[in-house]
Amino acid sequence: MAEAEQYNFAYLDEQTKRMIRRTVLKALAIPGYQVPFASREMPMPYGWGTGGVQVTAAVLTPSDTLKVIDQGADDTTNAVSIRKFFEKTAQVATTTRTPAASVIQTRHRIPETPLAEGQILVYQVPIPEPLRFLEPRETETRKMHAHEEYGLMHVKLYEDIARHGAIVTAYAYPVRVEGRYVMDPSPIPKFDNPRMNMAAIQLFGAGREQRIYAVPPHTGVVSLDFEDYPFEATKAAAVCALCGSAESYLDEVIVDDTGGRMFVCSDTDFCAGRRGAMDAEAVA
């Protein structure tokens, strides 16, 4: 038997996928609510996307096209290994082009190209509970969610302003989903927060913490703030050194050991697409 045939489609057995799909449906029915699920051991360490991989495995069909990104890039270790994993265990087509993908698993970024209906964005989540560092008791945070007691979340933002003069939380910035649940959007930069109001389905998987939550298409996602300190989606004040984009989220890259540095798009597919278009124009 060939190695690939020894695996069930997408690695997990059918009963497990069924269980995860049920959880996903419940999560979609209650936007922003963390649904517990029986997370499985995956052939990778916790913290490497075990939650996202299980969700991807459960939603993947043989006709899907998969894209995996890590901090926006298609070619970093985490993205490459997860893409290879599904190439081997599910034999699905893979791509790096955002519009061509039907399922996109992401670690800590939303692709720059707007997603369309029919696409699924799967996030890897390390800590699903937005209140965790303020209230360590799980019994208490569940009650706080149940009773909509979210004052504590603003205490965190208050502390930011009192100490630094502005809300300095730059990633995993808490949001309120459809006026009800406060949700951790996973450690995406707050630049991406406004872009969570999208046409695609967003699924969040936390493997170690055994929680799945979701934002259905066209669902209101509002970043928490104060009336006199409104939310601001921030990025580095520069343009991409490769493609010249002023709109995309930028990574700072150190290029030598004498302090040289440059800013480049964190979304490699978006950057390559723009450079390709510029080359085509130059030829024509």
């Binding site: 007691e149 004052g151 504590l152 208050y158 104060f226 009336e227 006199d228």
Partner: peptide, 9 residues
Amino acid sequence: LMAVGARHY
């Protein structure tokens, strides 16, 4: 105050 809805820093 924030628990009862104050949102003005």
